[in-house]
Structures are given as C-alpha cells and as structure tokens.
Nucleic acid binder design. Structure first.
Lengths: 208, 208
DNA sequence: ACAAAAGTGTTCTTTGTACACCCATGT
DNA sequence: ACATGGGTGTACAAAGAACACTTTTGT
C-alpha cells in the first residue's frame, strides 16, 4: 500500500489531440493499455515523481505539468491513492522509449482503446481541464515549438476544442490576451506568402 | 508513512469568511493552530474520510465538499501525502465538538493565527478556489439556510469576495444564473417591509 | 418624522461572434 | 492560370458595470 503517480500526457499529432498510453507487458493488466505511471519513491516529492516519469517516457522536461486529481482505488490497482498529473508536450520534441515491461504509443483521444484501471475517467477529466485552461491561459506554449505561425497555433486550439475557429477572432483573442508577441521574423513554407512567426511572452504557466 | 486527509471548512460568521481551526493539545505541533484532519483508515475512500472528519468536527453532512489539492511533506507532518478538501457549511447548523486532543474554533480568514504544517498555503489556495467557484456555480447553497433573502445571500458573497456589490446587478446575476428561485413566502425581520424568501433550485454542485 | 432595508430600470462599455475579400507565392 | 494559405475590418448581440429613488414598516 503506497502512493502512485499517473500521467496524462497530451500532444497534438496530425491535428488530433492525443494521449500517451502504454501497453503493459507484465501483470497486472498484462496486454492492456493504460496511462503511464509509477510509484512515489522514498523521499521523493510528488511533482518530482511526475517530472521523472515524464522525462522517462518522453525525454522532455520543462513543460506544462499540473496536478489533476487524486483518486483512490482506481480499478484493481494496488495503490492506496493515485495522484494524477497532466502534461502538454510538443510532439516534435518527444522520443518515446519502449521499456522492458511496456511499450508506449500515442493515441488520439477520440479513438482510445479500452483502458485498464478505469483510466478512461482520468483521461476524460484531464481533457475537460485542458479545455477550460485553454480559454484563459497560455498553457499551449508547451504544445508548440518556440516559434510558430498563428495558423499553427490555431490548429492546436482546434484540435483540442474539436471545432474550427474563425481566423480573425482567434487572432484578436490571443493577441488581446497578451500571451504571444511577434518575433519580427517570417517564414515561408509552401506556395504562399511568408508568415509572421510568433512566440509566447511567457513559457511558464500564466496562472497557477 | 501513510495518507492523511485535511479539511478547509469555511463558514460565514458575522459577515466574515471564517475557517475552522483546531488548537492541538498533543504532539506534534502541540499548542499550535492547524486545520482539522486525520488518517485515511484502512479500506476507507478519500471522500469517505473527508465526510467522516467533517461530520465529526461540525456535526453536518450533505454539504458542499470538493477535493482541493494533494500536498507532499506539508511541514514536518508525518504523512507521505496529504489530500486536502474544502467544505462550506452554514454556521447556524454547526456544533463544534471539542475533543480530547484538540479544541476547534472558527477564525476569520483575514486574521488567522500562525498555523502549523504550512497550513497557511492550504487555506490561501482554498480561498482562491472558493472565490473562483462563486462566479459561475451555486456552491453557496451550502453556506445558507434552506430559505433566505437576497440580501442575506449578497452578504455571503460580499464576505467571500471582500467587497461590496451592487444590489440590482447582484439580483440580475444570480437570478439569471438560474441557481435560485422565489418561494412565494416572505419574511419580516425588523423595521422594514417584508422580504421575499428564495431557495436554491439545486442543493448539489452545479458543475463538478 | 425618521431610520432601515426592499425593491426596481436605464445607459454605457466591453466582449464575443458572425461574416468575405484581396494578396503574395510557387507550380 | 490556379491553388494555397496569409492577412485584414465591421456590424450586431450579449454580458457586465455604474448609478438613484421610492416603498413599506417599526419606533
């Protein structure tokens, strides 16, 4: 009986909001998909354990990470309490590491496989929280590269909210929130005119 | 090394937002003020432990109770993790029960004594959360008697937000939110005309 | 008569939403 | 020439904020 830490790690792949799952190669729940997690080690802080697991699974650190909820008796898990966190990572910067006991993979949140340990509840709760945070904070900084076009940013919002947005209203809103600024640098991608690159004014949580 | 549950129990006394503290009569932190709490018992759920402690301290149940945050190593507490909850109770319905090892008392949140176990952080966090919830939910149902006047309700809001509000805007807002309705019954208090009594349309959390 | 609380509308500002066209570039 | 995505403005609706007087009642 001890404390476990479980992570809901979000990213956007092919314009779809996705979550990192592991396929368990050992008991319990062998062969099933579940959220990555592990035990809180001796003397370790909760946030420390979350950061360690995140780095372990994705290779990234210094991203948005927030405590979500503490569950008791998630399914037939053996933990006394399970402290869940959610994290946002830029897909381009992650390197998944298959482990001895499990294999990780990204899954679109709209098409999840069946999950062990009632992890559906955890993902649903995390998704809701993410959508709320989106409205009034800069949390997406963590899902985008350091410099990005407004269209790229809008695609991320659309992937999370699941609906298209108006280009002009989107621009007004995020500029008005003061979470991004122009870099002065432009980028050309394909057969169209160059686009202004933006950056976040802060790359830490705006409100904790 | 186990899991503890700690409660931030709010009420409004004399138009001041107050929190329940206990004066510890035994070690650790003997003689200091702290939030009420206790161990998660064997086989007990987190919410179950919170409800039990709440009933134990105040005699009330069936009130607004929400998980707040999970801390690790709060001060020199001996718990591995501390799961905190916040609750809202109607002062008129509480009966504090002095225990062998501690004495409980209400303290206005603006004039707290020094607290053990870094409990200031916990109270501050709970207060912030409460203020946010106030804006768009019906959480105050738990701080008021079943029937109340709009002025009484406004006083509760003012106590929590710490600033006076406009009577007409307040009425429009809460009626517009649809969280209360007229009962058709009026009440006379002092030297003034009778006031309409209102009740909440729901006495459970509007949004979880 | 006066003090105390209840009740009631309007104006203005801010915020959000809906909506369509032209431009630069590469093929 | 055409396809692709970048960039821009306006009108309307909704929500929130500021603000003052009259009524009923008890003393």
């Amino acid at each position: 009986m001890s404390t476990a830490v479980v992570l809901v790690i979000f990213t956007v792949v092919h314009e779809e909001l996705s979550v990192l799952l592991i396929e368990r190669a050992a008991e319990p729940a062998k062969g099933e998909w579940a959220l990555p997690g592990g035990w809180l080690l001796d003397g370790e802080s909760l946030a420390g354990a979350a950061v360690r697991k995140l780095a372990n699974e994705t290779g990234v650190s210094d991203v948005y990470l927030e405590q979500l909820f503490t569950f008791d008796k998630l399914g037939e898990g053996t933990a006394e309490v399970v402290v869940t966190y959610f994290a946002l990572v830029d897909y381009a910067q992650t390197r998944l590491r298959p482990q001895l006991d499990w294999r990780p993979a990204w899954h679109p949140v709209r098409r999840l496989p069946q999950l062990a340990f009632e992890n559906e509840r955890v993902v649903a709760y995390a998704e809701e929280r993410l959508r709320n945070k989106l409205e009034y904070t800069n949390v997406v900084y963590s899902l985008l590269p350091p410099r990005f076009t407004l269209t790229e940013m809008q695609r991320v919002y659309e992937a999370i909210l699941g609906e298209p947005m108006d280009k002009r209203n989107f621009r007004r809103r995020v500029v008005g929130l003061g979470i991004i600024r122009e870099t002065g640098v432009t980028r050309k991608v394909g057969a169209h005119r160059p686009a202004m690159l933006y950056e976040f004014t802060r790359r830490e949580p705006l409100v904790v």
